[in-house]
């Protein structure tokens, strides 16, 4: 059976009032986003905003010496390319696909027109931006104050919240790049979680076997981020037309 595609697999698009959705729907283009695909590079003007239907897109900062660190992740709860409606047109980070997926994209002209109307799209885009800022802030706190295995727990839980199932395809090197640490550190942290029976890690596939256990072990950063996403983007909020 061929899988079906629907823009409303993205929660922001799904939350748009009908009038607004029917306006943007013809402007959405379905695209494939394979692992490692770069949606935009640091400093380059963006052409599209992306609404993932599944999967994960990672926002990374690359240092001059080639190290990288993840600033935030986006899945089907949000969009990639806030600089287009915030007015900056480009950003200092890079957006790269961390887990293959499909997404819907909208070109910058249509996006700006819709945002300028000041209706449901603008309302949701701004709330999403606030949630994303929270995630970025909390990531920096976590990286400074919490242990590597707590950071790994946070990263696993935030990733799982955006995926179907309990498996992630990720090499330790990629995780190290995301967390901005040495690969050996990830090996040790993943080993601790595996020993505790929380995950199973084999050949680039991480299976979370005890999610409640991960939630017990993670620092407060996960709950802070999740709480803000739930508060700002809950299905119960009333979106203006």
């Amino acid at each position: 059976m061929t899988p079906t595609h629907d823009p409303r697999q993205n929660h922001l698009l799904a939350a748009l009032p009908e009038e607004c959705y029917s306006r943007v729907h013809p402007e959405l283009e379905l695209v494939a986003l394979p692992l490692g695909w770069v949606l935009y590079e640091s400093g380059n003007p963006m052409k599209h905003v992306y609404f993932p239907a599944s999967g994960i897109v990672s926002l990374l900062y690359l240092t001059d010496n080639g190290s990288s660190s993840e600033i935030a992740i986006t899945g089907n709860e949000g969009l990639v390319g806030i600089s287009l409606f915030m007015g900056g047109e480009s950003t200092t980070n890079r957006a790269v696909v961390q887990c293959s997926c499909h997404a819907y994209r909208m070109n910058r002209r249509v996006l700006k027109q819709e945002f300028a109307l000041g209706g449901g799209f603008q309302y949701l885009a701004l709330r999403y931006t606030q949630a994303l800022i929270t995630q970025m802030a909390q990531t920096s706190v976590c990286n400074r104050h919490h242990t590597l295995d707590q950071q790994l727990c946070r990263w696993l839980l935030l990733s799982l919240d955006r995926l179907e199932g309990t498996d992630l395809m990720m090499t330790q090197e990629l995780i190290a790049n995301m967390l901005g640490v040495r690969r050996e550190g990830v090996t040790e942290a993943a080993g601790k979680l595996q020993q505790a029976g929380l995950i199973n890690y084999s050949r680039g596939r991480i299976s979370v076997t005890d999610r409640p256990g991960l939630e017990k072990r993670v620092c407060e950063c996960y709950a802070v981020v999740k709480g803000e996403y739930d508060r700002l983007l809950s299905a119960k909020i009333s979106v203006p037309a």
Partner: peptide, 14 residues
């Protein structure tokens, strides 16, 4: 195909 399909992290076309 317009876009390939995806299942279990693998891309394919029917």
């Amino acid at each position: 195909f317009d876009v390939p399909e995806l299942a279990n992290h693998r891309w394919y076309a029917g």
